[in-house]
Nucleic acid binder design. Sequence first.
DNA 1: GCGCGCGGTTTGTGATCACAATTCGGGATG
DNA 2: CATCCCGAATTGTGATCACAAACCGCGCGC
Lengths: 220, 220
Amino acid sequence: MQSALARPALSDAPVQSAHDRVYRGLRQQVMHGELAPGTALTLRGIGKSFGVSMTPAREAVRRLSAEGALTLSASGRITTPELSNERIEELASIRALLEPELASRALRRAHLALIDRMESINEANARAIHTQDPVSYIRTNLEFHRSLYLRAQSPAMLGLLETVWLQLGPTMRALYTRLRRTTAPPHHRLILEALRAGDDAALRLAVRTDVTQGLRHLQV
Amino acid sequence: MQSALARPALSDAPVQSAHDRVYRGLRQQVMHGELAPGTALTLRGIGKSFGVSMTPAREAVRRLSAEGALTLSASGRITTPELSNERIEELASIRALLEPELASRALRRAHLALIDRMESINEANARAIHTQDPVSYIRTNLEFHRSLYLRAQSPAMLGLLETVWLQLGPTMRALYTRLRRTTAPPHHRLILEALRAGDDAALRLAVRTDVTQGLRHLQV
DNA sequence: GCGCGCGGTTTGTGATCACAATTCGGGATG
DNA sequence: CATCCCGAATTGTGATCACAAACCGCGCGC
């Protein structure tokens, strides 16, 4: 154990199989918007960049494509998904369905330490907007939401939601690099206020509008 | 070029890769409740039963485990999922969230031919109850719901729902073989009536109760 | 009789190889 | 100058193999 602060001792799996390392690495790249929509990948390229052979790369890609994080063409070529407008709207409406429910379930368990942590994540999010860093913006934005939803104690629902986030990753990158917003999203404050007030209806509404607002003006 | 003559062009995907055949076969077995919870599988066994080597079997298993249809132990052993009571309730509440939404979206597009088809599926479902065939019962039950949701034109939402069905497959088998019901579920009739009446609120309620009713009295 | 350790067997993992299909670029042709 | 065609290079697929870890059952010892 090198550092109890950097990596808490309750971390479960320090030893992970090769395909799992590849899976986690690719998954993070896709979810955080490090790859533009339509980016082409190859098994040999993935394997080389992770220092493994084609076999673990293949399994990671198969797993990610099952989650919608990657698209396999009919001939097997690997790309990040290029979503149609209808698909984006559908995924947004799924978020609008799942996230208020998760927030509501988390509400009764959200104590002050969580709200404080969400506030600090939100500040990091504002800094990412200021420095025009789309990857940091997406990452901190998702972190803000996930830290709340983790309290819902609903792993299956959170898992489903994360596959939706995965599918939207490259598109969110394209979105946020294009519109170059300079002001923080106002709804995060509303979410924090509703949490502090313990107001379920206000929380559901604030989460819903935050989710739909970000994906409303897309115009791909 | 010989296959173009041997296989008429009107079928869309006559040629499928080996791992896709394995994937589809296993997926159907799991979703339709042909496998009890905790059933152990092996890559070599799967490969042998599908006439392929370990490689396509591995990819199919990786894909199915990403969808929650199979569980991989820490050491890599493959089993069908054994769900805890909390997990079953959570998945039921996800169904209760997604299915009324899909039904509502399908409502405006549900013309008479669809309702007739759903009625005939429902009759097959009643026959499956009569003959005490759990696999046929689960299959026709899902078919009843899916034929409606297909009209919602929401492929992403339907895809998410199907992964939930997949996770519940073995559990539903255990459930329906245990309680051996002899009467048809009454809510399918309510769903059909609401469809005919074009009543959105009644449809949402009927679907929701049908979903929660079936998974309420579990007691695993 | 009961628990425990040990060895053979099973099983998943990752690497490598041969192969077919796809893709892409260059060059000839109109 | 555009278009089409052909060949080389790229790429995914499936099979096979070596290997380590996990598992299972038998037999020893208490």
